[in-house]
Design a protein around this nucleic acid. Structure first.
Length: 126
DNA sequence: CTTCTGACA
DNA sequence: TGTCAGTA
């Protein structure tokens, strides 16, 4: 892991800072953590500490949300990214963002996954 | 003063 | 998701 990646993964920001940077509510930020989309560490006083990477993910989630994806859809974007990582890890030189971008576009082009429509657990796998 | 967890008029 | 409570 490069030094830059190491720094981007260091947990140093309190939730207040993240709220200002992402314009998301504390409620939402904690909820996305429950959904395993971000993994902030904890300080001695049990306070959450976020990394630049966590903030990037939060910013991406905001975009997905504004484009109509619900939690199920967003979680799939990241879930598929992980699955694809294992395959590409030893082959393609795609970055995490490239992979997410690809699946994100696919999901959008397939329509659906709107916040209104309940869950889509039974949707066909991409 | 800031953040945390749990709960719901 | 908002928000209020009671803490740490």
């Amino acid at each position: 892991m490069s030094e830059k990646e190491l720094r981007r993964s260091m947990s140093v920001f309190p939730i207040g800072t993240v709220i200002k940077l992402t314009d998301l509510s504390a409620r939402q930020i904690r909820y996305y953590e429950e959904q395993d989309l971000i993994h902030p560490e904890r300080s001695e006083g049990n306070r959450r500490l976020y990394s630049l990477n966590d903030i990037d993910v939060l910013l991406e989630i905001k975009d997905y949300l504004s484009d109509g994806l619900n939690m199920a859809g967003i979680k799939r974007v990241y879930k598929m990214q992980k699955e694809e990582e294992k395959k590409a890890r030893n082959k393609k030189p795609l970055t995490d963002k490239d992979v997410r971008r690809i699946f994100y576009d696919e999901i959008l082009s397939q329509g659906g996954l709107n916040p209104k429509n309940p869950f889509d657990t039974n949707r066909p796998k991409l």
